[in-house]
Design a protein around this nucleic acid. Structure first.
Lengths: 201, 201
DNA sequence: AAATATACTGTACAAATATATAGCATAAAA
DNA sequence: TTTTATGCTATATATTTGTACAGTATATTT
């Protein structure tokens, strides 16, 4: 999808605002009013540009026949990512299983995807197999955060702990051992952290 | 809000469908087309009835000037209900803390509200304090379901177990005891069951 | 019995609206 | 250099659309 000019963005926002306010899309005249244009053709040509770039659809002949095209992944469809057991590096070990109809503002922090949990290493944190943990991609991590970390070619969900520069990943289950990161030997990186969880019974 | 006649419901659904399909509300003529009316006034008078009953708002003079009035609690705003420690009978022990912007079709089963969890009696089921459990009001309960039950004047969230007519409520935490229901002595009822869970970190 | 709500057909028309055409000006791409 | 895209003003018009008025008929309420 092509980029919009600043003026075209204004027009698109104007349409979005008008729909929010009234419940139905604006006419050319309405847009002119909102943005101070003096000719309906100013609005018309902006609409044609927005249509050409794929941001709206126009139903020919219909009054207010403007339909906002939802951008795929932006705000309403959150991907659920499952981890494949073996690892081939980076984030290619992930695969999108499906999408959940939910805004990325659903929890307090915006987030990027749901991670489908494997295993019970975090069970005492109330995180069970097949739970969906909302992950925000960030490097802004504090002790005690539940993080998605990559160690060599494995991805794991654990409590984060850092003390005097020594990083540990702690499970929430007696049956699992803590993971001590040797930053010389291990290829270690933080992918993001948990900001929420959903479970479907 | 008054009740709609079956014909008025059809018109309302027609409007909802049209908006879903096209992205903008229908004209009188569009409604006539969809529903087989032969006079625009058929649509017009239905619209006026819907407006009078508060289901839509009509912007006078504007083409397609129909705005669906969101019904408070129907599909987009789910109440979060907290339990008050003491009990004063029935469901008046509950209070709506806030609403969450989420469809009641978010989980596999439709549900009625979120219950804010108190205590850790279900921690081994991955249900922690302050978690929000999606509750569907139903009497259709199977063994092993997580139910919201009322015993005398207390409301509790537990596993349900029924064997030879003996009903037990089982915690998921060693530190708690199971509750055996004496249907003669206890005022017992099932309010509903859990169909999902969300947690905000 | 009379009034009101529901549920339409049919006709009419002013106002709202999409849209084409003619211009003017600037900036970027071919 | 010539086209193409951007960003408007201004005018015109066929079509769409809301809406009023006149009827007909049935059911419900007062």
């Amino acid at each position: 999808m092509k980029e919009l000019t600043s003026q075209q963005k204004k027009v698109l926002q104007c349409i979005e605002f008008y729909i929010k306010k009234t419940g139905f899309p604006p006419t050319r005249a309405n847009i002119c009013n909102e943005l101070g244009f003096k000719s309906p053709n100013a609005a018309e040509s902006h609409l044609r540009a927005l249509e050409k770039k794929g941001f709206i659809e126009i139903t020919s002949g219909a009054s207010r026949g403007i339909n906002l095209v939802k951008k795929q992944n932006s705000e309403n469809k959150i991907p659920v990512i499952g981890l494949i057991a073996a690892g081939y590096g980076t984030e290619s070990i992930e695969e999108v299983e499906r999408f959940i109809d939910c805004k990325n503002t659903f929890f307090e922090s915006k987030f990027d995807y749901f991670l489908k949990v494997q295993g019970l290493s975090m069970k005492d944190a109330g995180i069970l197999e097949d739970d969906l943990v909302a992950i925000k991609r960030t490097q802004d991590i504090k002790n005690g955060d539940i993080v998605v970390a990559k160690i060599d070619d494995e991805v794991t969900l654990k409590y984060f702990s850092s003390k005097d520069g020594d990083i540990k990943l702690l499970p929430a289950n007696e049956d699992f051992d803590e993971i001590i990161i040797d930053q010389n030997r291990n290829d270690f990186s933080i992918i993001g952290k948990s900001v929420g969880l959903i479970r479907e019974n």
